[in-house]
Computed example of a mutant assay.
Amino acid sequence: MTTEINRRAFLAGACCVAASPLMTPVSFAAMPGDNRLVTIVLRGGMDGLALVQPYGDPALSLLRPKLALGADDGLIDLDGFFGLHPAAKDLVPLWRAGELAFVHATSTPYRDGRSHFDGQDMLESGSAVQGERTGWLNRAIAVIPRPADRRAIDVTTTAELILSGQSPVDVWSARADLALAEDELAFFVRLYQNDLAFAAALQEATETDLLSDTIHDMQGKPRGGLAAVAKFAAGMLSADHRIASFSINGWDTHLSQSRIFQRPAMDLAAAIATLKANLSPEIWRKTAVLAITEFGRTARENGSFGTDHGTGGVAILAGGAVAGGKVYRDWPSLADGDLLDDRDLRPTMDLRQIAAAMLRQQFGISTSDLESSVFPGLVVDKRPAFLRG
């Protein structure tokens, strides 16, 4: 479904080449009200036992003699039982400010196999069965009050299921092989100098550093990365958008996990920190961030000093709307006999419950709509402790 071009649509069209080096899907939805929601899909199966390590569980060091960290390795103590991976140290200020929380031993209903594609489909569709081709975030848009005010924009290199569906979504398709040089930027300035609306949109993009942050450097390498994606999302959320969604890849750590895990963990921390830095205190106070992955990884490290596809993992919550400074969990233990199928962290929380709670708090979606339309078949729990409200 096409929509009328406006200032935001121009930003998504004429300036799309500026964001091309990001190589990361970003999606947005315009919503009434003041609350915001950001979802970050961690693609590849993020190892929750590595990001938020239960060092207080004595079985961890037995299962992971090479991968388990201690204080001497830089592990950052959170609560005397869990520690944060040092690659995510940029999240510590949010933890101390009570704006960061973790929900451990979480999972989607996916149990039938260990396929990234199937796992991500279930994560994004919000369904308990395979085959649903609409996303829970798109279905949520349809039941948020004031339907006439709903508008979404999908900024992506490939379509993401989480925002696919019947609710109208504008599309910004970034080209990964283009970059905006100074002469090209000058061309756009000249082209639109006599069109006040388009010229204003281009000026806005320039002033928010969307263009300058993503232009290639002198060596031809793209600048900005995930921080630039988050900064762009913050700019959209600071105006008329209320929902943003993007992805972070690189979490499939079958081998050499100690090395490979560093980059995506740093990207995740930088993205969340950048969101806060580029949102006003008033907006950040009303923002909830939810970072989720398709499945966790095996409790035991493998022979290649990595981990394989597992089940239970961790959800990351951030923002002023989150009751942070705590790791929420119904901890199942990693001891012999307590692992799921003798290999995985046993999940004790359905990820859909976390998403449902955020949608209810941030946008006033009723429990009946959550159970019938957004997450069909889910019996929504009472208000959880990890949100303010």
Rank of each mutant, 00 (worst) to 15 (best):
T3C: 06
L11P: 04
M31D: 03
N35F: 13
V38C: 07
G45F: 05
D47N: 15
G48F: 07
G56Q: 05
R64E: 09
K66D: 15
A68L: 10
L69C: 05
L78H: 02
D79V: 10
G80L: 08
F82P: 02
F82L: 06
K89G: 11
L94Y: 05
L94C: 04
W95Y: 10
L100H: 05
F102R: 01
T106R: 00
G113D: 10
H116Y: 08
D118G: 04
Q120A: 12
G131E: 06
R151A: 08
A159I: 02
L163A: 00
Q166S: 12
V171P: 01
W172I: 04
L185M: 11
L185R: 13
D195P: 08
L196Y: 06
E204I: 06
D217N: 15
P222E: 08
K231A: 09
S238H: 07
H241Y: 15
R242L: 05
I243A: 01
D252A: 12
Q257H: 11
F261E: 13
Q262E: 15
P264E: 10
L268W: 01
A271P: 06
A273W: 05
A277T: 08
L290E: 07
L290A: 13
L290G: 04
G296Q: 03
G296A: 10
R297C: 07
A299N: 07
F305N: 13
G313Q: 01
L317V: 07
A321R: 06
S333G: 01
A335D: 13
D338F: 14
D341Q: 14
M358H: 10
D369W: 03
P376V: 07
V379R: 10
V380D: 02
D381Q: 14
K382A: 15
